[in-house]
Amino acid sequence: MAGEEPILKINNIEVKYHEVILVLKGVSIEVPKRSIVALLGANGAGKSTTLKAISGLLKHENGEVTDGSIEFMGERIDRLSAEKIAKMGIVQVIEGRRVFEHLTVEQNLKVGAHLRRDGRSIKEGLEMVYNYFPRLREKRNEIAGFVSGGEQQMTVVGRALMTNPKLILLDEPSMGLAPLLIHEIFNIITRLNREENISILLVEQNAKLALNVAPYAYVMENGRIVMDDTAERLRENPDIKDFYLGLTDVGGRKSFRDVKHYKRRKRWLT
């Protein structure tokens, strides 16, 4: 990865919520230009917080980067407002398919183009999104709150695409979707990266899936990066096999007994 400067560089950041709750305790991540990097970790590890620190949405939740720095294309952004950061070409797709539920699918996409001023490039943007997600063209005039979960996920990814981003921060796009749909969406994500030259920082709990599309990944635990390596080597790593690939094998077929087993275990844990 030597040579070209990374598009995003997080240097040892510390993040606090409400001035006292320390959530990130020294996180460093680099995203090379035009690449996909995955960020893995269990619930509550601090993955979403990392993304919000980059996009500036953290301030909106009364959180703050209290130490370290974040650089985007060589410029420091950790003190900028979410609006400025969006203008520079970073867009976060928040976890949980947050469509504007009372707007139509196409209106959702148009809000994505908020920072594009002229009408023509909005049209071109819509055309591009509909090319990647033909299903959205069919649903364009439907209220986003009522389309299927997969279509909602496509809507929020398409909406992010409308901002004409250089870097997309994707938070758990697979959450709660059927395997076939996940496959479709991840295919499109890979294509976006290759064809539109968009860099992607992908947060996933589904490690198997993430390691398939991202050549490089970081593993996070308890607000710290505990490991980072190429996907190939991570796949072979015994800890990863145990904790991540074993536990969240959503990509493969899960038998009924496995599910029950998983549930039982969860009950013990709580």
């Binding site: 949405l57 909106h60 969006a86 928040i94 504007f100 539920e101 009372h102 707007l103 809000v111």
Partner: peptide
């Protein structure tokens, strides 16, 4: 549209600038 979006989901609207 931006106003309607903000009314629906302020955080998501912010993320789009």
């Amino acid at each position: 549209l931006a106003m309607q979006a903000t009314a629906d989901d302020e955080m998501a609207a912010l993320s789009l600038g």
